[in-house]
Each structure stands twice: as C-alpha cells, then as structure tokens.
C-alpha cells in the first residue's frame, strides 16, 4: 500500500528533517507514528502526498511513485486530515467543503450530492451540511474535515494529530470511528493511549529516522525504549486513566 524507501527531506533553511527513512504499510493496516516534537512526523505525512518532495529516496502509494507528474493521482488515493480543521475547512459552508475535492476531480454535481449524502449519513452530520464552517464546534469541525477526506474514498488516510483540541467524549467518539474505519491509516500523534488502542503497528521517529518499529502493544509498553526516544509510556500503562 505505502512504501517509503530511504527518503531524506531537508527544509529550505538547510534543516534536515528526515534522513534515510524506510518503512512500509500493508493494505488495511493502522500504523501510528510517534515521536517528540520536531521528530519529523508531520513532514513525513506531507511527503507522502507530495507537498514536500524528498531529495533522496522514493515513496510509492499503491505502486505509484510520488512525483510531480503523479501528484493528482496520489492525492486522490491518499487523503490527509490536518491537525487543525480550520486549515482544512475553507469554504463558507460544510457542504461545499466536503464537495471541494470531488469537484476538483471533476465529479458531476449529482455524484457529489450522492457521495456527500452518503458520508454525511455515516458520520451523522446531515444537519451540519448547510452550516457555516466557522460556526461549528471543535468536534464538529473535526468530523466535517474527516468527511471532506473520506468522501473522496481514499485507500490511504493520513491523520495529523487527530485527537488534538478534542474534549474526552468527542475524542472517544472519534477513536471508535477510526477503529471501525476500513481503510489503511497512518496516524501521526502524541496521543499514545490512542495509538495503543487503535494502531496495529507503531513507528517511533527520532531525529528524522526510524528509532523503533513494531506491534503497538510491545513498543509502547517498553519503558526503556520510550524513554530513549524522549517519550513516556501511555497514561493507561502508567496507571493514569
């Protein structure tokens, strides 16, 4: 599904964010990316959809290489749910926001209507469709942003801190939804409890490289490893609920 082959990404100011990063994700897997601030989690997500192009190595999404000429195809297959839904909901109402990607890919208005009605039903946001994006609560914005990606039926969804800014109940609701979501998921997060609960596998990034990789329950429970990566055990493993 997703193959990352020894990629290196350097920002224009010369700061090397990712260095010879290698990993792959199988179809249907849910993989968490954890690491300290600046470890390269968001950069990795942006590289997968070609917002940042690595100067070394290559990324393959379902066998298609991420490069300038394939970006349109890649972005239809891989959707990104941004950390801040305000960055993602830029149209004046929710319907147009969800329709944005579909229209850009040339879907007819009838198809757009059908698909939006479908996804709104699944996510329970039918009543929000005509609402102004900026009038929604944080949780509603997050769901609307998610809808704007899922409506494009991507085979890979990348999440950047999906549980940030959410109250506990909305966080739980979102986590339950993500657990049931049958697409390949790559989740960059600081929420280790969420990673533990919904990810099959976890990738620990440190200084732009893979520091550790393995089953979520094994990696996240390894106190020494987590400490060496600049992280802590998930709260539930520290006895904090």
């Amino acid at each position: 599904m997703l193959k990352i082959e020894s990629i290196s990404v350097t920002y224009p100011d010369g700061h090397k964010v990712l260095e010879h990063l290698d990993f792959h994700i199988e179809k249907g897997e849910t993989v968490g990316i954890v690491g300290t601030n600046g470890a390269g989690k968001s950069t990795l997500l942006m590289s997968v959809v070609g917002i940042l192009i690595p100067e070394e190595g290559r990324i393959l999404v379902e066998g298609t290489e991420v490069c300038k000429k394939n970006l349109s195809e890649i972005r239809r297959r891989a959707g990104v749910v941004f950390q801040n839904p305000d960055d993602q909901l830029f149209m004046s109402n929710v319907y147009d926001d969800i329709a944005f990607g579909l229209r850009n890919y040339g879907d007819s208005e009838e198809t757009v209507r059908e698909k939006i009605s479908g996804i709104a039903g699944v996510l329970g946001i039918e009543k929000l469709l005509q609402s102004h994006s900026h009038k929604l609560s944080g949780g509603e914005k997050r769901i609307a942003a998610l809808a704007s990606i899922l409506v494009m039926e991507p085979s890979l969804v990348l999440f950047d801190e999906p549980t940030s800014f959410l109250d506990p109940k909305t966080r739980r609701k979102l986590m339950n939804f993500l657990k049931g979501l049958e697409v390949t998921k790559l989740i960059a997060t600081h929420d280790l409890d969420m990673a533990l609960e919904i990810c099959d596998r976890v990738l620990v990034l440190k200084d732009g490289a893979v520091f550790a990789e393995g089953r979520a329950r094994e990696i996240l429970a390894d106190e020494k490893l987590m400490d060496a990566a600049g992280l802590e055990l998930p709260f539930c493993m520290q006895g904090i609920e």
């Binding site: 917002i51 972005r75 239809r76 941004f82 801040n84 960055d87 830029f90 990607g101 229209r103 494009m152």
Partner: peptide, 23 residues
C-alpha cells in the same frame, strides 16, 4: 503560516489554481 497550511490542504484535495463551485 495559516495561509500556507490552507493552501496545502487545498492542494491535498486536488486544487490546481481554480476553485470549482456547484452549477
């Protein structure tokens, strides 16, 4: 910063310089 993030979010959903509106 925000405008750059918004632009990235637009590009991720196939934006190529022109917003498509409904009929």
């Amino acid at each position: 910063d925000r405008s750059e993030r918004i632009y990235n979010a637009m590009k991720c959903r196939g934006y190529e310089g022109r917003i498509a509106y409904s009929d």
